[in-house]
Simulated assay, not measured.
Amino acid sequence: MAKLERQSNLELLRILSMFGVLTSHSLTAMYDLHTANFSLPNEIRVYIMNASVLAVNCFVLISGYFQIKQSWRGFVKLLSPCFFYVLFFSLIAFFMGKMNIKEMVIRSIFPLTETNMWFLITYFGLFLLSPLLNTAFNAQDKIQRIITLICLLFIDVYLGYMHQSKEITIDGYHLIHFVVIYYLGSFVKYINLKISNLRLLWGGYFFLVLLMTMFHMIKMVFSPIAIVYSMRYNSPSVIFVSLFLFILFTQLNIKSKKINWIASSVLAVYIISEQLVVNRFYYGGLCYIQQNYSEWTVIVVIPCIMVLFYLSCIFIDKMRIQLFSSVEITITNRLERFKGILFSLKGILFSLIGRNLR
């Protein structure tokens, strides 16, 4: 969908990014990190949260780097797991008495708009816009691309984040922010950076996350620092460190079919984790452990549960693919035929119009 060939270094980043999404949601469910609690355990949690909050930007940067190649196949692959998992878990919620039949039907027919999967909705919007964005970027020269990038960042960061313009985006949960990050990813591919000192890059990354953690501490007692730092996706610090981490992964040389195989199902992790029944069971379970067991138990058990949940979602999606890949192919082929019919009708219509004009 987003590329012609998979590069395992960026597929690994895709896997880690989705695990980052799961981590940030888990930490948010268990703790209130926006308090003046400067204990070591809490600051470690804030450090992990700062590393995890980069995930969404990195995911979109990858799409911009390869430029989404819009097709019916990509369309089906993006939406089919959404329809499948929403229907499947809505049925479970209905039989458990957690959802009435009206809610079940509406959620199943309109899984994008009647669920809380904001990322999927926004990414779908980006998918639809991608031909326009790709054409615009590829038609520009270097100076035009730099000017466009500055203008986009001004809109997203200055007007949106710093001045909190609701019409644009105050926190990055918006198509405008995705367009900016997508364009930034395309620009990284264009400049084709080559950096040999990877140790320096890794050291720089861990230092930047530490710096973000220090900014968090300062923000708790001196709120104006929020103009530079916050955990919002379009804050200057989050965008900069996301870009730094992304560039780091572009420099890695990794080839692995296993990584590519896992990465092709990571979106399912997000979709499954956002379903009503799973959400309550998984995050509710984490909160129960956090509230009833010691700090050391939480430190050991919670990461294990998260990894197990992540791998289980991947396994479930691989079974879905095995069972329904033929259905996806059939739907894709029929959509392609429908497109062919539309083009034929368009040709006939233009031919008739041309004859009438003569």
Rank of each mutant, 00 (worst) to 15 (best):
I92T: 02
C313N: 07
L4S: 13
F83P: 10
L342K: 12
G203K: 13
I146W: 10
N197E: 10
W72K: 07
E11Y: 03
S196N: 13
Y173H: 14
F119I: 00
V209M: 06
A2G: 13
Q275V: 05
I62Q: 03
W72G: 04
H174T: 09
A29V: 05
E5K: 14
M212T: 00
I225Q: 08
F89D: 01
L175P: 02
A51K: 01
L4C: 09
L40G: 03
M162Q: 13
V301C: 09
P81R: 04
I331D: 05
I146G: 08
K142P: 07
V277N: 00
I353E: 15
K339R: 11
S71Y: 12
F110A: 10
L308K: 05
L342P: 03
N260F: 07
E295Q: 12
F89H: 01
K219A: 14
M49A: 04
V278N: 03
F207M: 14
F246A: 09
L27I: 14
I329C: 07
L323P: 06
T115I: 07
V228H: 03
V278R: 03
N234H: 05
I109W: 07
L211H: 05
Q7T: 09
L210R: 04
E167F: 11
L159P: 04
H25L: 08
G354V: 06
K346V: 07
N57D: 14
K3Q: 13
L33E: 01
A29E: 03
L112K: 06
L349T: 15
F127N: 01
L132K: 05
I109N: 06
R45I: 06
G74N: 09
K257T: 08
Q140G: 04
F95R: 06
W261A: 10
G64D: 01
Y182V: 01
F84V: 15
F207T: 14
L128I: 07
V46Q: 00
S223T: 11
L175A: 05
F66G: 03
I353T: 13
V298N: 09
L243S: 11
F94N: 05
M217K: 12
I271Q: 00
D141G: 12
S24C: 12
C304H: 05
S90P: 02
R14C: 04
N260P: 06
F240K: 02
S90H: 02
V157Y: 00
F338E: 10
N9Y: 10
F38L: 15
L252M: 15
